[in-house]
Amino acid sequence: MNIVVCIKQVPDSTHIRVHPVTNTIMRQGVPAVINPYDLFAIEAALQIRDTHGGKVTVITMGPPPAAVALRKALAYGCDEAVLITDKIFSGADTLATSYVLASAIATLGKEQPVDLVFTGKQTIDGDTAQVGPGIAKRLNLELLTYVSKIVAVNREAGKIQVERRAEGGVQLLETRLPALITMLEGTNEIRFGSAPDMFRAARAEIRTWDRESAGIEDLKKVGLKGSPTVVSRVFGPTPRAEKAQQIAFDPAAPQAATDALLEKVLAEIPKVGKELERHKVEAGAGANHE
């Protein structure tokens, strides 16, 4: 099996802070990590390789420091890594990003046909879930999104069975390879890399591809120029027009404050009173059955 996993290096969102005065993102000192959703894709790919043989190539599009994320993926046990980096790729939205990644996967496919492509469900910084479907469409791969379980892989027949999370239930799907799978979170646990893998990762040479080596055919489709969407405004949240009513709280008499609060709420927002009344009735009715 020749498997490609697409990952993204993202700022660790739990560390992102917004400057209280200027409303700008404070990026200094925010650690970068592999998008947490991608770890489930990496582990799923490694498990298939371990059972069926072959190799796992991890790729990312990003600035040169994204090589750190690739090295981390090698330490988990991925076999090869390709960094796709070029100044003209910057400012890409999901359509332009999927074009670059699809081109690179097609280029890898010239060395050896690709059987499976994995991505995470979405990234934690963009949260769009659009790049996986975009790559699948561009490469004409069967698309399996929100996969919760790889049920069976039949290498000889070129078939795969998966469970896919749908609205209100789980689909059991069977399709032919090559396919693209976006892996659902919580479906496996990323392994600790073995000591040999960690040593190999530290020394490994990471292939770096620019527009030419990635096989980009149409430069108008990449970066800001190739992106149909434009961010027209970034802004902080606006406070509600009316300020929140402060309820004075004295730890010595806590219930005085909460009684006052309920009185205010009941007087000012009738819908809450109605809801509580309904609950009173329901609770009373329920008590009769006990």
Partner: peptide, 14 residues
Amino acid sequence: PTFGGSLLCTIVTL
């Protein structure tokens, strides 16, 4: 929302 939900952004398709 953008940046992991710390700011909002408005996006247009030109």
